[in-house]
Write a protein that binds this DNA or RNA. Structure first.
Length: 262
DNA sequence: ATGTCCACTAGGAGTGGA
């Protein structure tokens, strides 16, 4: 079973690019973030043509998340309780069938903009709510995945320039404490399980040639319980799809894709 | 300091967000 997360930065602008990726990588389950489209405009038929069912939790202009699955999927919940004012950022489904089924959540965590912006404290509050919510169901023996754009750089190894950026947005102690609090519920950063020492990024600014200068951050994660770690075979950040394809513009995020034993 | 991209409004570029 191949599972993935990807902040696509605009579904309508990215559709053709996404379809290329699906055909090439053939994931079974994908969580998308930053759809920037209302649910009624979601192109279900385009995905169904490739064999994917979709659940969406979108809104006009900004935010928005969706889950694609080849196997039937069942909505569990949409939206983080108490945090609907921050937009459509969370969607949880049961995906797959039988013993191999997993509890899969896609997350688009708030950016926070800057440490002196009001959104920064709201971001920290959102993460507190996320931890409280996750604590209600995360258990080591359950196959649970939380995947998404967390907008936090958890450790110096995950930043292209920790020395310069420490204390700035994505790199603060308060954000890192929130990330750790989530992990402490019994979740593992699957990329780090497989690649404990590798410097790898999942996001590069469109500006300034950041991708080619290797100036990126690792802010997109697949988190899984012990039951998922036990099934983990591979996990990679799909840098190839941060590059233009057939003249089509990529998202500023690369997909993260993992293979699990069925 | 900031070289890009996306969506919105409006009916052609500017603005806000990331």
């Amino acid at each position: 079973m191949r599972i993935a997360t990807w902040n696509i930065n605009g579904l309508r602008a990215r559709l053709e690019f996404i379809l290329l990726w699906l055909a090439e990588r053939e994931p079974d389950v994908v969580g998308f973030q930053e759809l920037k489209v209302a649910d009624e405009l979601f192109p279900h038929a385009e995905f169904e043509a490739l064999g994917y069912h979709a659940l969406t939790h979108g809104q006009k202009s900004w935010n928005g998340v969706a889950i694609l699955s080849r196997a039937p999927l069942e909505l569990v919940e949409a939206g983080l309780p108490g945090q609907s004012g921050f937009g459509s950022r969370l969607l949880r489904a049961r995906v797959g069938e039988g013993a191999g089924a997993i509890d899969f959540t896609t997350l688009y965590c708030p950016n926070g903009k800057d440490t002196d912006h009001d959104d920064y404290q709201r971001k920290l509050d959102w993460f507190d709510a996320l931890r409280d919510w996750a604590a209600t169901f995360v258990r080591p023996d359950r196959p649970i995945v939380l995947g998404g754009d967390f907008n936090i750089v958890p450790s110096p190894l995950d930043s292209w320039n920790e020395e310069r950026l420490r204390g700035s947005i994505f790199h603060t102690e308060a954000e890192r404490e929130r990330m750790q609090a989530l992990i402490d519920l019994g979740l593992f950063d699957l990329f780090r399980v497989a690649h404990p020492e590798t410097r790898a990024f999942s996001w590069w600014d469109y500006r300034g040639g950041a991708f080619h200068r290797k100036q990126g951050l690792r802010i997109d994660f697949l988190l899984g319980t012990r039951a998922i770690v036990d099934r983990l075979r591979t996990i990679e950040i799909d840098r190839e799809f941060r590059k233009k394809k057939d003249g089509l513009t990529a998202s500023d995020h690369a997909p993260v894709i993992a293979t699990l034993d069925d």
